[in-house]
């Protein structure tokens, strides 16, 4: 796999981060060093082994479809600096 500026910029774009030129260089080095060390998991034989997405078996606990008390509109908006009286205000969508 080739770690280069193009890949770093693509990842940063997906992650919604802006990088300066020195940061791009630094990430190129970090990616090379860290992924090189992490790539050793490829040598493990995992044929017929299922993934563990949790350390223990997690059962689905489905709740009844009933209306319950939830956050009030005022509470939901309380921590936002960008709001009207009943809505969040966001940046332009189009």
């Amino acid at each position: 796999m080739k770690i280069n500026k193009e890949l770093i910029l693509q990842v940063a774009k997906n992650a919604r981060l802006e990088l300066t030129e020195p940061e791009i260089k630094e990430f190129e080095k970090d990616f090379k060093d860290i992924l090189d060390a992490f790539s050793k998991i490829s040598e493990v034989d995992t044929k017929n082994i299922k993934e563990s997405f949790h350390p223990i078996e997690i059962k689905n606990h489905l709740r009844k479809d009933e209306i319950k008390e939830s956050l009030s509109q005022e509470d939901a908006l309380k921590n936002s600096k960008h709001r009207t009286d009943i809505y969040f205000k966001g940046p332009k969508a189009i």
Binding site: F38, I41, S42, V44, T46, I49, K50, E51, S52, F53
Partner: peptide, 11 residues
């Protein structure tokens, strides 16, 4: 990476 790591986690 991610799925391989999840399998190694099982082991």
């Amino acid at each position: 990476y991610y799925l391989k790591a999840a399998k190694v986690r099982t082991l």
